[in-house]
């Protein structure tokens, strides 16, 4: 560092101190008359003629930061944290290019309030049925099949990015509950994202309790409806529900049906999926 550099540094430091202790200091860039209500005023074209009033056309090329820390672009008196005014120019107010931009996109928030461009939300919904008998062994998670209406998949594939509700309509039986015995059946049900054959991510879960009265055998049937939720699912995610009986009994679907009933989807659980 030579002497000149040292000197320059010192002088700059001096200016910084002066600015920060001055009560009414405005810094003007490309203007001799920074707007009195600003702290920093950049006059793009250097065309402002007054420090006291905003002549709208003159402010169109200005950027200011005011005493509240509000940023004005094309306006000297910002009315929001970021206030953009293009009413006196041909430029559009805001361009946000993060690679997701495209025609007719909407700007979506995440949980933090950061945004990105996505397709216009379109409500979509489908019911996934099944006609596959299955035993849900007590204390073990077993996946609910959805082979009907999800051609080519044994699981649910998210058609469009969004927040989704998954509604399980359970129809099944509880095994070997003695006749007349009333039990609060319990199952933990998880909404999962299928990652690979050995990995699933649980996105929502609950334990659901339903009163069941035994009729003996394998036909102590009962039903209930309950929903699950997952937000910000990208298109193409593969999802499934799995269920673990927690009440000491095995659960079953497709049990005790007559030959004509075994292929009827109404006698099995179904899963409704829709974006919200």
């Amino acid at each position: 560092m030579n002497e000149n550099d040292k000197m320059r540094k010192t002088i700059l430091l001096g200016y910084v101190l002066i600015i920060s202790v001055s009560l009414f200091g405005q810094v003007g860039i490309n203007t001799r008359i920074p707007y009195a209500g600003s702290v920093l005023h950049i006059d793009g074209k250097g065309n402002n003629t007054s420090s006291t009033g905003a002549i709208v056309a003159e402010a169109a090329d200005d950027v200011v930061i005011d005493k509240q820390g509000n940023v004005g672009v094309g306006v000297l008196q910002p009315k929001a944290k970021l206030h953009i005014d293009t009413s006196n120019g041909t430029l559009k107010p805001l361009r946000l290019a993060d690679g997701s931009q495209g025609v007719n996109k909407y700007f979506f928030s995440d949980t933090e309030g950061r945004g990105t461009w996505k397709d216009k939300p379109i409500a979509n919904g489908i019911v996934y049925y099944s006609a596959t008998p299955r035993t849900f062994t007590k204390n073990v998670f077993t996946e609910l099949p959805v082979e009907v209406n999800s051609a080519g998949y044994s699981r649910i594939t998210i058609p469009r990015a969004g927040n989704y509700v998954f509604t399980l309509r359970w129809w099944g039986a509880l095994d070997a509950l003695p006749i007349g015995t009333k039990l609060m059946s319990a199952a933990t049900i998880q909404l999962c994202r299928y990652v690979n054959a050995t990995t699933a991510t649980v996105l929502d879960q609950t334990t659901y309790y339903t009163a069941v009265t035994g009729v003996g055998g394998s036909t102590t049937r009962f039903s209930f409806t309950v929903s699950f939720f997952a937000s910000n699912l990208p298109a193409g995610y593969v999802m499934f529900l799995r269920l673990r009986p927690d009440d000491g009994y095995n659960w079953a679907t497709g049990a005790g049906l007559s030959a004509g009933q075994t292929t009827a989807t109404i006698y099995y659980p179904s899963i409704m999926v829709y974006n919200i």
Binding site: L96, A97, D98, G99, S100, F107, D110, E112, G113, R114, G115, T116
Partner: peptide, 9 residues
């Protein structure tokens, strides 16, 4: 921004 959700919060 290089990344989605990177331009504006």
């Amino acid at each position: 921004s290089d990344a989605a959700y990177g331009t504006l919060k």
